[in-house]
């Protein structure tokens, strides 16, 4: 029974993937979608008997979007899980060290001043810069106590929020609208390029953090204890923070700030399979991927308009979270 549960959670993205491929504004019979998908997958050079629009929709529009949603979902959830374990705090999200506010400011800056860099690159760099600043602020005598890190994250977030408001003040309404939309996050611009850019760092980080998952167990006992159990805590902390931050920063830079996934999914999975990070990290990846994919399916099919998926993750995540919290009486972390 327990094994079955693990298995179901582990393969969750597969049905979500095939379900999502047939969802979209453009009407293609589901079977044709799968036909196109498998033909293109195994015989990419075959000349297609379908209308060219079909092929473009399935292969160039839906597939990158679906893959990107999977990647970003996995990235935010694993990042959240790893940081919650490391910081021994279940309220931590990938954005705790100021990542999202740094990224937002980067985008605002790129809209304000014409720079030779893309907004994505600016978001990524400023996201990392914010985390680096938070880490530097928290570092006292070569050590970074968790509480200092969290406080430094708050400080850095506040700093970049202020900077962003300054930038916003000078932005004209059109650009401002663009910034707001970017901040809410969404997959509607997904291209193969985005998948290519994000897949390597995200997959690499997911694999690395899965390998280090037992280390995270030990680290979650606290700095002093982990040290007494022979760990170089500072090095471990840096490696995990870097992996978790880079993967989340990559995701944020491509699709904007998508809230709650990195907070809720770690909780949900912890409630389902317990706190052991050896199961928690890989299953966060699969559950997070499936969750965000389905959320995006809703975002693109509820109305003719594109809804920002961040609104849906919040709307759907919060009540579910409240339900689970009440049901388990918060047992998963006390």
């Amino acid at each position: 029974m327990k094994k079955l549960k693990l298995l179901v959670l582990a393969v969750l993205p597969i049905p979500a993937f095939f379900f999502s491929l047939v969802i979209g504004q453009f009407d293609i019979p589901p079977l044709t979608v799968y036909e196109i998908f498998f033909t293109k997958l195994f015989n990419p050079l075959i000349s297609s008997p379908w209308p060219p629009a079909y092929e473009v929709v399935v292969w160039n529009i839906r597939l990158p979007r679906v893959l990107l949603a999977l990647l970003v979902g996995a990235s935010l959830s694993v990042s959240g899980t790893a940081l919650q374990g490391l910081f021994r705090n279940p309220l931590v999200s990938p954005y705790i060290l100021g990542l999202s506010w740094g990224a937002n400011f980067g985008v605002a800056l790129s809209l304000l001043i014409p720079l030779p860099f893309s907004p994505q690159f600016m978001a990524f760099s400023f996201g990392l810069l914010a985390v680096f600043l938070a880490y530097s602020i928290a570092k006292v005598r070569g050590e970074t106590p968790v509480i200092s890190l969290v406080l430094a994250g708050v400080i850095v977030s506040a700093f970049f929020t202020a900077l962003q408001y300054i930038a916003k003040f000078f932005l004209d309404p059109q650009a401002l609208q663009g910034l707001v939309y970017w901040m809410m996050g969404g997959f509607y611009l997904a291209h193969w390029d985005d998948v290519m850019v994000t897949c390597i760092p995200i997959i690499f980080s997911v694999v690395m953090l899965s390998l280090m998952s037992w280390r995270i167990n030990v680290l979650s006992m606290g700095d002093a204890e982990a040290k007494m159990m022979g760990l170089n805590t500072e090095l471990n902390k840096v490696v995990i923070i870097v992996l978790a931050t880079v993967m989340a920063a990559v995701a944020v830079s491509v699709v904007g700030t998508i809230g709650w996934v990195g907070l809720i999914i770690p909780h949900l999975v912890r409630m389902a399979v317990g706190p052991d990070h050896r199961k928690l990290i890989p299953l966060s990846a699969t559950v997070g991927a499936a969750f965000l994919l389905v959320a995006d399916d809703l975002a693109r099919s509820i109305t003719t308009y594109e809804l920002p998926v961040g609104i849906l993750t919040t709307l759907s995540g919060v009540p579910f979270f409240v339900y689970l919290l009440k049901k388990t009486k918060g047992r998963s972390w006390s």
């Binding site: 280390r215 006992m221 052991d276 972390w333």
Partner: peptide, 17 residues
């Protein structure tokens, strides 16, 4: 600790070195 590990999971952490 912040997470409800089982007893054996806690003890096995001693194998970290």
């Amino acid at each position: 600790p912040p997470f409800p590990y089982t007893v054996i999971d806690v003890v096995v952490m001693g194998r970290a070195p």
